[in-house]
């Protein structure tokens, strides 16, 4: 993307303090950093890690929902879910492209995912045993993702910011279709309402964990804030999400699985109980309910698609060779 073929490795100047100062000055002035501009190696590394993790999350995120495409309760729901999963594939592409502008290849990125070297959002390591989970993922998981992603539209790195603008436009459809599914169940039969409540009980805490560790324990925050890769702290974004989401749940007559959840009349914020970070750490370490299943599914898709990639390349080569031969013959 953006002719990164021209990228010149400037490792010799990697830690030149004068270049660093000039770079910081540009970031402070809200100038966008573009692929061929000088940037500190740490900035490049952080972005490759963050953007590729984000891309992997989109791709792995297709799995829990793909699970329900053939079992959606109506043609309308099936078409919408299929469109949403297609969007996620597209989001993965936009993000991989943005990461590639930083000098890393698609093949390397895919390999990092498949070998477990790169992480993806832990939320996709939870199972989707009921149809209500399709609604809950749209409403809560995409809702939390939107909170995280809107500030990223102003990220200092141009290609990432531009990818996020496209993605945010499409995420809004995801969240609304999810909420509509939950609403339909919440207003349905007692069994359907129970299905919605059970799903909320399972997804609420993992959704809150999507914003990452508390600011008190987050290591990368300060530098990323200075580089304007990150604009708001984890805790601030989490609070914004809770404040927006709790009234939406109460409107549906659902309850949240947090006995400490209460509105602070003075601050106007919903206060929540303690988050079980040991669960979060366990899932990040690979011990969540579906970590192995997700990677196995990705590996299988990659392996079984290999012949298609090879055949397409061989076909393109054959056609190019024939075209060249015809040209020579004509001359």
């Amino acid at each position: 993307m953006y002719a990164q073929a021209l990228n010149v490795a400037e490792k010799a100047h990697a830690d030149d303090p004068e270049l660093r100062a000039r770079f910081q000055h540009r970031v402070d002035a809200e100038e966008k950093i573009e692929p061929n501009d000088w940037m500190p190696e740490g900035y490049r590394r952080t972005l490759v890690r963050q953007i590729s993790q984000h891309a992997h999350s989109e791709i792995v995120g297709m799995l829990p929902e793909g699970n329900w495409i053939t079992r959606a309760p109506s043609l309308k729901r099936k078409a919408a879910l299929l469109a949403k999963v297609q969007d996620e594939g597209g989001h993965g592409l936009y993000l991989y492209s943005a990461a590639e502008t930083l000098g890393v290849s698609r093949e390397e990125l895919v390999e990092q995912l498949l070998t477990g070297k790169a992480k993806y959002s832990s939320i996709f390591n939870y199972p989707t045993p009921s149809w209500a989970d399709m609604g809950m993922i749209g409403w809560l998981v995409d809702g939390a993702a939107i909170m995280n992603q809107i500030p990223l539209c102003r990220c200092s790195y141009g290609p990432y910011a531009r990818a996020m603008i496209r993605i945010c436009k499409e995420e809004s459809f995801h969240q609304r279709q999810g909420y509509e599914i939950v609403m339909t169940l919440a207003k349905g039969s007692p069994a359907q309402k129970k299905m919605a409540q059970d799903s909320l009980n399972r997804w609420w805490w993992p959704a809150l964990m999507m914003f990452g560790p508390s600011d008190r324990d987050s290591q990368h925050s300060d530098q990323n804030m200075a580089w304007k890769i990150k604009r708001f702290s984890n805790d601030d974004l989490r609070q914004k999400f809770i404040d927006a989401t709790v009234p939406q749940g109460h409107f549906l007559g659902l309850t949240f699985p947090d006995p400490d959840l209460r509105l602070n009349a003075v601050t106007g914020h919903w206060e929540h109980g303690p988050i079980d970070w040991s669960e979060f750490n366990r899932v990040v370490r690979g011990e969540g309910p579906c970590n192995r299943e997700r990677l196995k599914a990705r590996q299988k898709a990659h392996d079984e698609g290999a012949w298609v990639r090879e055949a397409a390349l061989a076909h393109a080569e054959k056609r190019a060779a024939r075209k060249a031969a015809a040209k020579i013959a004509a001359e």
């Binding site: 993307m1 953006y2 592409l93 290849s105 698609r106 093949e107 990639r309 397409a312 076909h315 393109a316």
Partner: peptide, 29 residues
Amino acid sequence: EKTMPLWEVFIRSRTGLSHRHCGSLHAPD
């Protein structure tokens, strides 16, 4: 595996404006 070539994508919107760069992708041809 051999790497797939990279392509830049330009799209003309309905409003009759010129083609605009909107992203990139990998494809064999």
